[in-house]
């Protein structure tokens, strides 16, 4: 378990593992942004001092083993059911902080009913939604968020919207629900974006702690392996193609959340 390295007495640590992360090597592909997002969540949990009362719910998808990487109580949901599982945990243990970590297939395809109803009930849970426009774990199939014309192993001619429909904008869809207090879309494609994403994750957890309602941070991410690009090219591709379709920024900030933002 992980708390960093031995530090000589005359030196001061300036960067180390967050306590909420383990030091296990992840199985994520080199260049994948899941690791960045894991770290942001762990830093926020540490900074809010809630590690010992947080429970995470892992998805089915690339992050299926997230519980190996977080130094937190964790469970592994069936595909798409993380918001229902999180609901069960939170309702019987209201003092715990509960978050789900879900990908686009998990949240925007098979688990659409669960996420919409959890948000609509205003469940006091936080969802981190990682959107990389493809099914990573199963080897690069079309996702509900795959862009029009995007080539995947199950849309070899590019996504044909006449046959496969349009990519779903989940932050916008969830943002209209009265139970959702804070919904935002961020991206971890460059350093300023990573910093803004961390601020958003922090606010999302604070919304839960303040009991204001459901909170979700959609994070545009990359899948260089299945996109067939180098890590750097993938970052540029996401900026050039994903950001125009999935505009960054808040889709829902309830009045009470705005007041919370001003306090910080």
């Amino acid at each position: 378990m992980a708390t960093g390295q031995d530090i000589p007495p005359d030196m001061e640590p300036v960067y180390q593992y967050p306590e909420s992360l383990t030091s296990r090597f992840t199985h994520y592909c080199p260049g994948c942004t899941h690791g960045v997002i894991h770290r942001l969540i762990a830093e926020v949990i540490d900074e809010l001092g809630i590690r010992e009362r947080t429970v995470g719910v892992a998805p089915v998808g690339c992050a299926v083993l997230a519980y190996d990487y977080f130094n937190l109580d964790f469970c592994e949901a069936a595909h798409g059911r993380a918001p229902a599982m999180a609901t069960g945990i939170k309702r019987v243990s209201p003092d715990t902080v509960v978050f789900t970590y879900q990908g686009d297939g998990d949240l925007a395809a098979i688990g659409t009913a669960e996420i919409i109803h959890a948000a609509n009930r205003g469940e006091l849970i936080t969802t981190i939604f990682v959107n990389n426009a493809i099914y990573g774990m199963t080897g690069g199939q079309m996702a509900p968020t795959t862009l029009p014309g995007q080539v995947t192993t199950s849309s070899p001619g590019g996504r044909d919207v006449r046959m496969a429909g349009w990519p779903i904008k989940m932050a916008e869809l969830i943002g209209v629900l009265p139970g959702a207090a804070y919904v935002t879309r961020q991206a971890v494609l460059d350093v300023p974006g990573i910093r803004r994403a961390k601020q958003a994750i922090r606010l999302a957890f604070r919304v839960q702690l303040a009991g204001l309602g459901f909170s979700m941070v959609e994070i545009l991410s990359t899948c260089n392996t299945n996109w067939g690009l180098s890590p750097l090219e993938a970052l540029e591709w996401a900026k050039a193609h994903m950001v125009p379709y999935y505009p960054l920024g808040d889709t829902k900030v309830a009045d009470a959340v705005r007041a919370l933002m001003e306090q910080a």
Binding site: R81, G88, I89
Partner: peptide, 14 residues
């Protein structure tokens, strides 16, 4: 019912 049983699963895990 899908959500029900997964809520049960979550509460049981707690």
């Amino acid at each position: 019912e899908v959500a029900s049983i997964n809520m049960v699963y979550g509460a049981a895990c707690a």
